[in-house]
Amino acid sequence: MSDIRFTEEHEWIRLDGDVGTVGITDYAQEQLGDIVFVELPEQGKTVKQGDEIAVVESVKAASEIYAPVTGEVTDTNGALEEAPETVNAEAEDGGWFFRMRVTDPGELSTLMDSDAYKSYIAELD
């Protein structure tokens, strides 16, 4: 079982070795509604924890996605360009946004685990 962590801004990151896969949570896609466009980062881009890294657009509005930890983008989910609705259908699985090489694994401890995130969103509603 790989380690999955959550940000207060509703991104998730699943770590496999030193590579993290990043997306938005099911709660986030539910809040956004129908997703019509995802702007993915460029491969090789380096970001610091909390940097704006991608944009997700619903019919109503654009929302920024932040880097959950510091690192370098190694891969993006190109399938979202033609089928952004995958984020609604499979937010925490097939609707992933990008992969990144995590340079400071210590930052992961600043994020929530699954139980902590569940209590966090329970309080938002």
Binding site: E9, Q31, L32, V56, S63, E64, I65, Y66
Partner: peptide, 8 residues
């Protein structure tokens, strides 16, 4: 993710 929020 930062969704736009309506002002209070």
């Amino acid at each position: 993710m930062a969704a736009s929020r309506a002002p209070e």
